[in-house]
Design a protein around this nucleic acid. Structure first.
Lengths: 108, 108
DNA sequence: TTGGGTACTACGCAAAGCATAATAGCACGG
DNA sequence: CCGTGCTATTATGCTTTGCGTAGTACCCAA
């Protein structure tokens, strides 16, 4: 991986996860599959699971364990009220950032 | 500072610096002033100088020292050929990322 | 019984942002 | 003559993140 791409993603994957969950409850493995469909992200399990734990510890996500039809039980995550607020903030900031970068790239 | 914002910037500031230098030669202090004008970034000296050193070590920037009218000598940075290539790559990736995020945020 | 898909956890490294502080030269007012 | 403030850079150390690697565990089909 190209190094600078890895760095560009820092924090961004958190935004992605929260946005996926904005559409409704989901569990780790499914979220990974979902994000893998976006080639620009090309994310892996070892990246997503720690983020989910962290967001849960921060009180942005809540968990519900459900037995799986195959494999260990699924941990369904969904947004808490704080989580919904956070994702709104993040999307707003991302929007601003996009505009600022656009100007910068076009030499202002 | 809000933590998640700090993380979102990782790698991005590098892109910003290179884009500022795409307009022509500049030195650390001036670049900081330039980026401070963009409130979304609100960058500080201790962030910018290490990035400049790093980019130079990677061969993306070249340096020219010039005595300053006030204070220590200025270190003027400019893009090398590799630097110009890199900034083009980065801008392209940023564009893709913006599109992918846009879809994600709008619920696909 | 062996391979493959599902599903999660744990360990540890490298890199980035940033706070803090130190250094240093010039100009201006009192 | 001395302090304050602007210019301009360097050094140190902390925290967090992404991610490679590895391990655990369950089910089903060939």
């Amino acid at each position: 991986m190209d190094g600078w791409i890895t760095q560009l993603r820092k924090g961004l994957l958190e935004v992605c996860l929260l946005n996926v969950l904005r559409r409704g409850e989901s569990y780790g493995y499914e979220i990974v599959q979902e994000l893998k469909r976006i080639e620009e992200l090309a994310v892996s399990e070892s990246t997503v699971y720690p983020i989910l734990s962290r967001l849960r510890n921060e009180g942005l996500l809540k968990v519900r364990d459900v037995p799986s039809p195959a494999g260990p039980p699924r941990r369904y995550f969904s947004l808490t009220v704080a989580g919904k607020l956070r994702v709104a903030e993040m999307n707003a900031y991302w929007e601003l950032l996009g505009q600022a970068m656009g100007k910068l790239i076009q030499g202002k």
